[in-house]
């Protein structure tokens, strides 16, 4: 199952990107977590039919990708992976919501289509921001930031283990699928029956491996607290980063930029 293996390597690349040394990467992780939170709240708080006013928000991912030197195509591909799920969620909007909102010539565009598109833009923005956060901060540092921001330590560590468990599970699934595939001689194997027992085995095996990893962590002095090598403090740069972006998000959320620009340049 080369595809599972490739997908895991691809996902791990995101964590590796976090090891770069750009000005964005060296910022204190708390500032980046807070800005991402402000961004997501601003975007999500728009009404369900809002389209145009969300467009200026693309400035944040664009600037961050450039400043942090993240590969834009890679980030775009990651976001595109989520899109089918979003479309599935909003699939019935055009069916149930048939109120005509716009008319272009003979073509009528219903509220359902607008809300579906709005949902898609929202997901691109929020998922993109989350990916950028991981790619510029790293999962360990994010969990550490959450803890320093007051989230109980047990939740932060759970989140970290969950992230680690995804890789353990994916690795084991890749191996089990390959073994099954090689002995199915190009046919279906035993079909669904083999999958049910495989799932059970996967759970037990990954459980055991996760336990071994945990033991190895304990053996190296892990006491429920994560340390990152990059020591940082919340200084002037962080404050500027946080205030700058937050003010921009608040202005974009409260002021209709397109209208203002339209009034300035009639």
């Amino acid at each position: 199952m080369a595809s599972i293996h490739a997908a895991v390597i691809d996902l791990k690349r995101l964590d590796q990107l976090a090891g770069s040394d750009t000005p964005i990467h060296t910022l204190d992780s708390r500032a980046k977590v807070l800005v991402t939170f402000a961004f997501i709240v601003s975007v999500v708080s728009f009404g369900r039919y809002e389209l145009i006013r969300m467009v200026p928000f693309f400035v944040y991912p664009a600037v961050m990708v450039v400043l942090a030197g993240l590969p834009p195509l890679y980030v775009a591909r990651k976001i595109a992976l989520i899109s089918p799920f979003v479309v599935m969620v909003g699939l019935f909007n055009p069916v149930f919501d048939r109120t005509v909102m716009y008319q272009i010539g003979q073509m009528e565009i219903s509220g359902g289509w607008i809300s579906l598109l709005s949902l898609l833009i929202r997901s691109i923005l929020t998922v993109g921001a989350a990916f950028i956060l991981v790619g510029t901060t790293g999962f360990t540092a994010i969990c550490q930031a959450l803890e320093r921001l007051g989230i109980p330590q047990v939740f932060a560590v759970q989140l970290l283990f969950l992230h680690r468990y995804i890789f353990v599970l994916a690795d084991e699934t890749g191996r089990a699928s390959k073994a099954r595939e090689l002995r199915s001689c190009g046919r279906k194997g035993l079909g669904i029956a083999s999958f049910s027992s495989m799932t059970g085995h996967l759970l037990l095996r990954t459980w055991q491996q996760a336990e071994r990893i945990h033991t190895a962590m304990l053996a190296r002095g892990f006491v429920g607290r994560f340390h990152t090598h990059r020591k940082s403090r919340f200084g002037a740069d962080e404050l500027l980063f946080l205030l700058g972006w937050s003010l921009l998000f608040i202005s974009l959320r409260t002021v209709n930029i397109s209208e203002v620009l339209g009034a300035l340049f009639p």
Binding site: I213, A216, M217
Partner: peptide, 29 residues
Amino acid sequence: RTVGMVFQYPDDQLFMPTVFEDVAFGPLN
């Protein structure tokens, strides 16, 4: 701290994103 243990399967022992961070895990703790 006194007894350092190397496990049979290195995959169980290496869990950080880079080699540096993995080796630094113990000393940081």
